[in-house]
């Protein structure tokens, strides 16, 4: 009974949060409800006894959304509403149609009962161990590729941002003037 109540509460809250994210015109509302929704989704993982993944969901999205906030802070005035430039009817219909398509594609396998748990939870072994086993045996190559990609992105970021890092920014301006 608890599971059912919790499931419906979490689903309702998740959908509500993301609905706000999509419909609101204010950057701050959108960001906050996005963060809320991402964190509420972790409730689903906890319900499925996947504690580790639930916690990872919280940690990763807290950091990620905070980085997004930082961008929002740089690019927008968060106290003003954003005026949408594309508000045509075709645009709206296409968006709705494509999202319906996506939902259908993802739910049809579940409806036909073709979904099986490939890696069920082992009794007595923690989630972290289970995830680690699968990650470092079956999915080792994607894992390493992702690591290399992140490294490339990091080096790129350092090079882009690191020009004239050895000089003080205020001194550079004074010399130019």
């Amino acid at each position: 009974m608890f599971e059912t109540i919790a499931f419906y509460t979490f689903s309702f809250l998740t959908i509500l949060a993301f609905a706000i994210t999509v419909t609101t015109k204010n950057v701050l509302y959108a960001m906050s409800s996005l963060a809320g929704g991402m964190i509420i989704i972790s409730g689903m993982f906890f319900l499925l006894n996947a504690d580790f993944l639930g916690v990872v969901q919280i940690i990763v999205y807290t950091g990620a959304v905070i980085a997004l906030y930082a961008f929002a802070m740089i690019f927008f005035d968060s106290t003003k509403d954003i005026v949408e430039t594309k508000t045509g009817k075709t645009f709206f219909i296409l968006t709705v149609l494509s999202s319906v398509m996506l939902v259908l594609i993802l739910t049809i396998p579940m409806a036909s009962g073709q979904v099986e748990a490939l890696y069920p939870i082992h009794e007595g072994v923690g989630n972290a161990q289970d995830v680690g086993m699968v990650l470092f045996t079956k999915y080792l190559v994607p894992f390493e590729v992702a690591a290399v990609m992140l490294l490339v992105a990091m080096i790129g970021g350092i090079i882009m941002a690191g020009k004239k890092m050895d000089k003080n920014l205020t001194e550079i301006k004074e010399n130019e003037e």
Binding site: D51, F52, G54, V55, I58, I59, A128
Partner: peptide
Amino acid sequence: SNAGILFVLGMMAV
């Protein structure tokens, strides 16, 4: 939970 410490640290970060 078997992810106890991560949960505590994660919620603190929230």
